[in-house]
Design a protein around this nucleic acid. Structure first.
Length: 288
DNA sequence: AACTCCCACAACCGCGGGTCT
DNA sequence: TAGACCCGCGGTTGTGGGAGT
């Protein structure tokens, strides 16, 4: 037996909100607040809407101080760095950008920002030092892509996308990023790791998406790294796994010292968790 | 002018987790 | 402890408008 519906689907209006509905909802909440119960709210106002729909309308559109459209370069930068660092955690990103909603950021990312970056990557791909198979255009010819298809449960499309974005960003000459240590992935290394039966056996839980991103970042960390935070450059060009571990420790130290002043405690916590997971994974990987 | 396609944004849906009884 | 209820999140779909033919 499935979950009971949150409202009577047959008797609620769906689709775009009218100005009248907006006015009713806004007036009620501004006077009385939400009352802590979105489900009951539409009945009180006399709206034929689902409570969840009311909540969404208020949070994403009617709430005061909401900004729509016109993302600045600075906001672009913050969104990009957060996406690479913590993935599609839209609500956390929204907390870093006053006036922006998670829905806004998600839409902006999916429709504009991602294309902006990957679009640039297509243009520069021919003279890239990065393997061309990372280009979306040439994906189907990539050995890596084959490995990804065979290891569907290992690496999600979003994870691959994040790697690609990191490379695009670095390839544009951005070595001054104040976020997760990033590097250039070698196709052979990535393929070897994700197809290693021992690694899969020991580490892969298809239901664990947190692990999935940590795993791939751990692999990413096997190459040259360049990290610059708060004006003090830390250069990484390490070959040994032990050095990779030290580098992760360095990043953890930076987090602990609150070097990324614009990161919230929530983001730092998330990054710290990933960093610790990466360290553990790297240590285990060294034993393979 | 009519039609199709594409894009951006709004809204919906299902699920996981927290809280309360 | 179990079940009901609700909230919040992230993925997906729907819709309207503009551009192109």
């Amino acid at each position: 037996m499935g979950r009971a519906p949150c409202c009577d689907k047959a008797n609620v209006k769906k689709g775009p909100w009218s100005a009248e509905e907006d006015a009713k909802l806004r007036a009620y909440i501004e006077t009385n607040g939400t009352g802590g119960n979105w489900i009951a709210l539409p009945h009180k106002i006399g709206l034929k809407r689902c409570g969840k729909s009311c909540r969404l309308r208020w949070l994403n559109y009617l709430r005061p101080n909401i900004k729509h459209g016109g993302f600045s370069e600075e906001e672009d930068q913050i969104i990009l760095s957060l996406y690479i660092s913590i993935g599609s955690r839209w609500s956390i990103m929204a907390a870093q950008l006053p006036g922006r909603t998670d829905n806004d950021i998600k839409n902006y990312w999916n429709t504009k920002l991602k294309k902006k970056l990957l679009g640039d990557y297509r243009k520069i791909n021919n003279r890239s030092k990065i393997s061309p198979q990372y280009s979306p255009i040439n994906q189907e010819h990539s050995n890596l892509q084959g490995a990804l298809i065979n290891s569907e449960t290992l690496i999600s499309a979003s994870t691959v996308e994040r790697i690609r974005l990191q490379m695009c960003y670095m390839n544009k000459g951005n070595n001054d990023s104040a976020f997760w240590p990033i590097c250039h992935v070698q196709e052979s290394q990535l393929t070897n790791l994700i197809t290693s039966p021992k690694f899969v056996q020991q580490h892969v839980n298809p239901n664990d998406t947190v692990f999935e991103s940590s795993q791939i970042r751990q692999e990413v960390a096997l190459q040259n790294l360049h990290e610059d935070t708060s004006g003090s450059t830390i250069g990484f060009s390490m070959q040994e796994e032990n050095d990779q571990l030290r580098e992760l420790d360095c990043f953890k130290e930076l987090l602990e010292k609150e070097s990324m002043s614009w990161w919230s405690s929530e983001v730092k916590e998330e990054a710290m968790f990933s960093c610790s997971a990466d360290s553990l994974l790297l240590q285990e990987c060294m034993r393979l």
